[in-house]
Amino acid sequence: MPKLKVGIIGSGNIGSDLMLKLCRSTTLELTTMIGIDPKSEGLNRAKKLGIHVIENGIEGFLKNPDLAEILFDATSAKAHIHHADLLNKIGKKVIDLTPAALGPFVVPTVNLREHVDVKNVNMITCGGQATIPIVHAVNQICEVEYAEIVATIASRSAGPGTRANIDEFTVTTSKGIEQIGGAKKGKAIIILNPADPPIIMRDTVYCLVDGDMDEARVSQSIYDMVSKVQDYVPGYRLRSEPIIDGNKVTVFLEVEGAGDYLPNYSGNLDIMTSSAVKVAEELAKVQLSNKV
């Protein structure tokens, strides 16, 4: 089967983790790693892996646009706004892992197929990727009036970008809970825990539903959803059975990373990169079948 050529913009933690995941893909061929710091560990690693490296950012790629059809943007919201415009002009698809949220939100298990034709899709946040599937699972059985999520991540796995703009996490995740999860109102909280050894990412989802709840069906819907997410994030799991109390559902989750570039505790970064790869693979299938 032919593979679709892809590239990564950004050679930090997320870009480097994406690189290792893409090397395993059966539908995507990682051809290019785009950075701005020739000394960065990410670019050096790419060189060792035999991937074409561009050291002068997006400008370098624009001179060689045939290197990739889909670009992953793992830079910052601000840089992404610049990249998105340039890449749109030359007809490239972009999977945005920054909080820029220019394009529609995508969660692979919920709305992937709706946006296969869109030029720019946004991966929301790590907390969103971990919790929106659960909100959606509950909402399929009974209407979710209010959903609230609490993401607790190891301090070491929160990079300087996340820290400088922590409001972007809460605001973007809340929107995702509403727009993609289907809750009438959403709220997101993020907590950084500095414990050493670092804690594995934990997410708690609370849903308040309208009317009577068929407990068995709600639980089953959650179990089904967890197994769907596990298809692309193997370390995604329930810490306990869902707790149902009146009209409130509480779900405790844990996300252990695959330990590619980042250690296992960084489930928050792993779920972002895994979800982004999943989205690109789906886009690639469509794009490749269109060509035939």
Binding site: V150, T152, I189, I191, L192, N193, P194, A195, R202, T204, R239, S240, I243, T250, F252
Partner: peptide, 17 residues
């Protein structure tokens, strides 16, 4: 013991369970 920080109230139910 688990070095839980402020705001991690969800850990309470988890630990109790």
């Amino acid at each position: 013991k688990r070095k839980v920080v402020g705001g991690q109230e969800d850990m309470i139910v988890d630990v109790a369970r």
